[in-house]
């Protein structure tokens, strides 16, 4: 503990400690976010969005009803529709069970992620399929790390 250490010595000592890494990174983030806070009011929402949300309260598929004919072409506002010739087929597809539910209740729309088919599946599997592939790979790698550490001693 020498009293006359320079500022640079003290700074380099702080950042060389591994435990301070998180602090340092979070600090960087706070600085950028605070500076960026000023620019936020100038960011305007672009009105012409891809895959816009439409809500039709009378439909039994309520929040997810995107219209269209099952097993027919349905216009979907994708980035490059020409790259996905069958875009829209997944959007309109309902499994037989879901179709029966949609005919008889008003609540199938709330569980649209519960069965294959629908707009979310269209985006996740078809038009932006590569995202999902990477996402699954991340899960797979994390799983491999965790299970390796978990079972190492057995």
């Amino acid at each position: 503990m020498k009293p006359n250490r320079s500022v640079i010595t003290r700074i380099s000592e702080t950042i060389s400690r591994l435990e301070n890494l998180t602090t340092l990174y979070a600090f960087f983030f706070v600085v950028i976010a605070v500076l960026g806070l000023v620019t936020l009011p100038f960011i305007t929402y672009h009105d012409d969005q891809l895959y816009p949300k439409t809500i039709d309260p009378n439909s039994s598929l309520n929040p997810y009803d995107r219209g269209g004919v099952p097993f027919g072409t349905t216009p979907v506002k994708a980035q490059y529709p020409e790259n996905s010739p069958y875009v829209g087929y997944v959007t309109t597809y309902l499994t037989p069970l879901s179709h029966w539910l949609a005919d008889h209740t008003l609540h199938i729309g709330t569980t649209i992620v519960a069965h294959p088919g629908g707009i979310i599946d269209e985006i996740l599997y078809n038009t932006r399929g590569l995202d999902t592939v990477v996402e699954t790979s991340i899960l797979f790698v994390a799983f491999a790390i965790a299970s390796y550490l978990f079972r190492r001693d057995n």
């Binding site: 994708a78 490059y80 790259n83 996905s84 078809n126 038009t127 932006r128 399929g129 590569l130 995202d131």
Partner: peptide
């Protein structure tokens, strides 16, 4: 980056 040499299309992700 210069002009593109080769394009690989995966739906919306090119």
């Amino acid at each position: 980056g210069g002009q593109e040499l080769f394009v690989l299309e995966f739906g919306d992700i090119v």
